[in-house]
């Protein structure tokens, strides 16, 4: 597959950003390869109501 990009004049004024987080990117420029991932593990069981107990990962 052939893919042609014509980059014409780009002039941007003011950019206001609150936050760039969790493997996000804010790029002013060119790039060849970008590979971003983020995994969140927050199942319903991660809310524990009861006596405070130490954290023990599965299998230990």
């Amino acid at each position: 597959m052939n893919y042609t990009v014509i980059n014409r004049d780009v002039q941007v004024g003011d950019i206001y950003l609150t936050a760039v987080t969790s493997s996000a990117i804010f790029l002013i420029g060119d790039a060849d390869v970008i590979n971003l991932s983020s995994a969140f593990d927050t199942p319903p069981e991660s809310l524990i109501i009861g006596p405070l107990v130490p954290l023990t990962p599965k299998g230990s």
């Binding site: 990117i25 790029l27 060849d32 390869v33 590979n35 971003l36 983020s38 995994a39 991660s46």
Partner: peptide, 13 residues
Amino acid sequence: STSTIDADTRIKH
């Protein structure tokens, strides 16, 4: 400009 960006985040909440 850059060539390669690789980022990975894992969050256990």
